[in-house]
Simulated scan of single mutants.
Amino acid sequence: MREIASPLLSQRTTLRLGGTAVAELILENPEDVARLPERLRVLGGAPVIMGAGSNILAQDGDLPLVLVRPDFNQGPEIVGEGAGKVFVRAGAAVPLPRLLRFCATHGLAGLEGLVGIPGTVGGAVAMNAGSFGVETCRKIENIRIASNGEVRVVVAQTLQYSYRRLCIDDKKNDFIVLEATFGLTRTARDGICRCMRHNFFEKKSKQPVTAWSAGCVFKNPSPEMPAGRLLDQAGFKGKKMGGMAFSTLHANFMINEGKGSATAALALMQEAKEAVLERFGIALEPEVRIIPCLFP
């Protein structure tokens, strides 16, 4: 286990925001899992599991947090086949784009909708990332997790997941994804590549994929009433505050224009929530993970 003192969240999140945590613990092998609870007790900060930091809004200042980063980069690799599926395993730290390239190269379908989503396999599993009608957890065969200092395998049938949410034993964020095995189907490589290209350029035309952003800020209340449409109609597309802005491409994407702060981001989010509630009677819920959490 490697330990880094006083890591900056602004250097570890795609939104480029956040203050200083107590420490960062990097898990390099399964034996580190057993040592983790004691080290967290000594450091005293609340643990926050970090992947690539692509869905996090970290607050400013000195933060009573310890970042825990599983650094398992093995795979992707094919580990079996049966019942019409090909099983592909990848470590939690494998970048999602690398997994998708592997699938395209080997003619394995099922995850094409995730193209253009930044982050890692572990993060995509933990938040049940989704796009273009695909949800990560629907394609899982099993996952290996660490919980309470122990490592175990959880099979797909026992996973509890919903929109942007995964629970293990009725608990959320109380486990660390170490690796995931996906059940995919064989199909023509050309078809997979065409689908991924289409999805990527569709996303690029409508979302600020190259900006400093954390992805969607709010959850969609329903497929018929997406948050982006509500924010647009409430006048928040392109709205700015303190170096932060809702994108002019997609109103549900908040971007850091270079000198933003978490304080400004949270104030802009609150203003947007109040405007949508007043106009439509709909209470938006954050999709981005705010740390430390503002509410118990």
Rank of each mutant, 00 (worst) to 15 (best):
F295K: 12
L25E: 09
V79S: 09
L99A: 03
F246K: 12
D62E: 15
A188R: 14
A234N: 09
M1S: 03
G80S: 06
I290Q: 06
A180K: 05
I117H: 01
I291E: 10
D71G: 01
R98S: 10
C103E: 05
L36V: 12
I140A: 01
M244S: 08
A267P: 03
V79T: 12
D232S: 13
S147I: 07
I168T: 03
S10P: 07
E38L: 14
H198K: 10
W212S: 08
T13I: 11
G53H: 00
A21N: 07
F253R: 09
A129M: 12
P223E: 15
D62A: 13
E141T: 00
L8C: 10
L57R: 07
R41I: 14
L9A: 11
E3V: 14
M50R: 08
G18F: 11
I192Y: 03
C193Y: 00
A188V: 08
E112L: 03
K219E: 04
T136Y: 10
Q11E: 15
A93N: 09
E257L: 15
A146E: 04
F72A: 14
I176S: 05
E38N: 08
V42K: 03
R89T: 13
E179Q: 09
A34I: 08
T158N: 02
L178M: 10
E257K: 09
L8E: 14
K172Y: 02
I291T: 04
P97Y: 02
P221A: 10
V153L: 09
V288L: 07
A265T: 03
R165Q: 05
E77D: 13
L36D: 11
P223T: 15
A124I: 02
V115W: 06
H198E: 13
P47H: 02
F72V: 13
M241V: 00
R41A: 15
Q11H: 15
A156D: 12
L27Y: 01
Y163C: 02
T185G: 00
C293E: 15
F200H: 05
A46T: 12
M244Y: 05
E285H: 05
I143M: 06
P95S: 05
N199Y: 13
R89F: 04
R186I: 06
A109N: 07
Y161T: 01
Y163A: 01
V22Y: 00
L43E: 06
T210R: 12
L27R: 01
A214G: 05
L166G: 01
A283M: 00
G116H: 02
G80T: 06
L17F: 10
G80K: 03
V125L: 11
L63V: 12
V153D: 15
L57V: 10
K172T: 09
F201E: 09
T210N: 12
E112Y: 03
M1Q: 00
V134A: 05
I282A: 02
